[in-house]
């Protein structure tokens, strides 16, 4: 029964997208991402610690309900170049998170009632996943798979700007003639304009402990900063080392140029 409904939905979706294609003359290509500014851009840009910590909160309270971030461990939260939590804070965040436990001494992974055994995470553990496997994730999201967020910023054309535009692009009105597929949402920054993800951010959807006003824009900025760090945790170290390397190479080039001129002076 459910399957029929789903296939009907897909057929309907195909039909509507075809008609939309006809109506718009193929104009469902995603819009160019918005021009937003992030502290981590440019050769000297660094991650804003406050934004990283707030972004982690948005990730944890909003995104993590559906999206995994498999490449991140709790220890990363306290590592240099990251959100700047102390080790104690990171440990507390880990302890608060529950992850599936290893088989117990009797070899069981579930309790008497069949519920999976859980344990507190440690610093060495990865972030918990919202679903046990891909099938479960698809089943809970009308067949769409919420992508893993560890590398999402680097895995999308337009990088941070794209994710930011997507998160803040839900309020835009669909143009006349464009019909949003049932069960999907209009977002002009998404290829095809129909996105399965419901608008994730709401005004004051989270409460920031540092008193920052949690507008949609602010949350998007913060969580994108967090995700940018998640995708490229060594960025600050890279830029810092790059500066040193550049200075060194320029000095070396200068010395070699002088030697080169000196050697060749008589040969021309």
């Amino acid at each position: 029964m459910r399957l029929t409904k789903l296939s009907l939905g897909i057929a309907l979706g195909l039909l509507t997208s075809v008609s939309a294609f006809a109506a718009e003359g193929g104009a469902t290509k995603r819009l160019h991402p918005k021009a937003a500014e992030f502290e981590f851009e440019g050769p000297f840009g660094t991650y804003d610690r406050g934004a990283l910590q707030r972004g982690y909160q948005v990730y944890k309270e909003v995104c993590a309900a559906c999206h995994s971030a498999n490449l991140l461990s709790f220890r990363n939260l306290a590592e240099p170049g990251g959100p700047g939590f102390t080790e104690a804070q990171a440990r507390a965040l880990a302890t608060a998170a529950k992850i599936p436990a290893e088989p117990n001494d009797k070899g069981e992974t579930t309790d008497d009632k069949g519920a999976p055994l859980m344990r507190s995470a440690t610093l060495a553990d990865r972030f918990p996943s919202p679903y046990p496997n891909e099938n479960a994730a698809r089943a809970s999201n009308s067949g769409a798979l919420p992508p893993d967020l560890s590398l999402i910023v680097k895995a999308r054309e337009g990088e941070a700007h794209y994710i930011y535009s997507l998160l803040t692009g839900f309020h835009e009105k669909a143009p006349a003639g464009f019909k949003v597929t049932e069960g999907k949402y209009f977002n002009p920054y998404f290829e095809g304009w129909n996105i399965t993800m419901p608008p994730p951010l709401t005004e004051n959807g989270v409460t920031y402990s540092d008193g920052t006003k949690a507008t949609i824009d602010q949350q998007a900025h913060d969580v994108v900063t967090f995700l940018a760090w998640a995708a490229e945790p060594k960025m600050e170290e890279r830029k810092r080392m790059g500066f040193g390397v550049m200075v060194f190479l320029i000095v070396l080039a200068g010395l070699l140029f002088a030697a080169y001129r000196k050697v060749w002076k008589d040969a021309h």
């Binding site: 060194f248 070396l252 010395l255 070699l256 002088a258 030697a259 000196k262 050697v263």
Partner: peptide
């Protein structure tokens, strides 16, 4: 010239 050699050579070696 020798000075430039030595300077460039040592900086290069450090690198």
């Amino acid at each position: 010239r020798d000075f430039l050699y030595v300077a460039a050579g040592s900086v290069g070696a450090v690198g």
